[in-house]
Design a binder for these strands. Structure first.
Lengths: 224, 224
DNA sequence: CCGAAAATCAATCGAACGGTTGAGGGCGGC
DNA sequence: GCCGCCCTCAACCGTTCGATTGATTTTCGG
């Protein structure tokens, strides 16, 4: 846990090897251009989704840092990909790079083992600094992200729903009725209602539709 | 209306001049790299938001094509920027480039005078072809966008809610109860229910939460 | 080891919601 | 002028939802 391994030994200061994972060709191109502009940093591959990234790793690509987009249309979601990458032996550092920071995303990504969290509107210098920091095993968070996390922790983390509650709120937002949710999760309808009461309390609302609005606004769930 | 003006005269086939407008440095970098790779195309400027783009135009930058992101965090929204750009004398063609296509966005952008609509996950060749087509004054739509528009027109615009229905669906998505909606719109609760029944029918759902989900998915309403 | 939090289930009750039927006024197209 | 669509309102009825109370199990941390 003291940073990524350097299999070739440290004869001299070799370049930081970066793998770019994003489903948008435009973004991949931009990241590669940014990365290649930096001294001591080189892009060693690109992947359009999590599955492709894992294949590259299986095929012997050994990056020090993975720049990973969170929301990737089809295919594996960034959080899941992060989880699988960090579960590998001597894993690279995973830097999450995403358009906007919903609280749920940040927490999930950190839990999945991400080393840092960058916003796509970050200036190039910030991306550069983050890549270097990540290669040294340091945690990097974009200022807005850090502030959000701090605010959340400082506020006692109150609006934080439990895992199950978040899951149920997500199903509510998909338009499912309590009975449907209960069948989907193999629990009784009574349990669903209990969770909902807790959710309403935490969000300060008193109806399922208001809970959807509040959940979307707080970034606890995402509008597909 | 036969394509952008060529102030220097047409002594020889000069390059298509492109202005890039996006609030993400990464995306700007990627677009510039893509554009510069193309023969006969050159980037003449970058702007981080609509206001900056208009300033550039005021200062004499004369692009043939503007590559414009729709959702820009702070500052002017892409639709509004498009409207103002196309309202200028001898305007450049505006190519909308966005992450995902909600129907409302597409229609608004087209109404605002956009020449075309591209998705950010489009391959580079598609971007290249679109830039050239736009510079010739042609309309270009990414296949998924075109299909969506066609499907809408062919279906007789059926899932199109009336103005009032859209308004009510929006309030429902904000978490308001029927009685609250009735007071907000100065109509009776019975009327709200009638509208809702019509909305359910058009969206093919049978509950208000499902209507929210369907409305978001169809781009009829937007998650703030 | 014990208390707190999370997740599960049950039963009840009033209020809100969803579906149906019916109806009237305004407005634009044929 | 008439037909259709939109917006408005009303009454009824069955279902779902939200609130409350109370209970069990597991898990985590002090």
């Amino acid at each position: 846990m003291s940073g990524p391994a350097h299999p070739e030994g440290a004869g001299r200061r070799e370049a930081v090897r970066v793998l770019i994972v994003d489903d948008h060709p435009v973004v991949r191109r931009g990241l590669r251009a940014m990365v290649d502009d930096l001294p001591d940093v080189e892009a060693v591959g690109e992947a359009a989704d999590g599955a492709a990234a894992l294949r590259l790793l299986d095929d012997g690509t050994r990056p020090d840092v993975v720049l990973m987009d969170l929301q990737m249309g089809d295919g594996m979601h960034g959080v899941e990909a992060t989880r699988r990458i960090t579960a590998r032996p001597s894993p690279p550092a995973v830097l999450i790079l995403t358009t906007y920071s919903t609280d749920a995303d940040i927490l999930a990504a950190v839990e999945a083992g991400a080393t840092g969290y960058l916003l796509k509107d970050a200036p190039p210098e910030e991306v550069a600094a983050a890549v270097h920091a990540a290669s040294r095993g340091e945690t990097v968070l974009a200022p807005p992200v850090a502030a959000r996390l701090l605010g959340r922790v400082r506020a006692g983390g109150r609006p934080a729903l439990t895992q199950r509650e978040t899951e149920i709120l997500g199903l509510v937002a998909e338009g499912l009725a309590n009975k449907q949710i209960s069948r989907r999760l193999f629990i009784s309808e009574a349990t669903v209602k209990t969770h909902l009461v807790h959710i309403y309390g935490k969000l300060g609302v008193d109806s399922r539709t208001a809970a959807i609005a509040a959940g979307l606004a707080a970034g606890l769930i995402r509008a597909v």
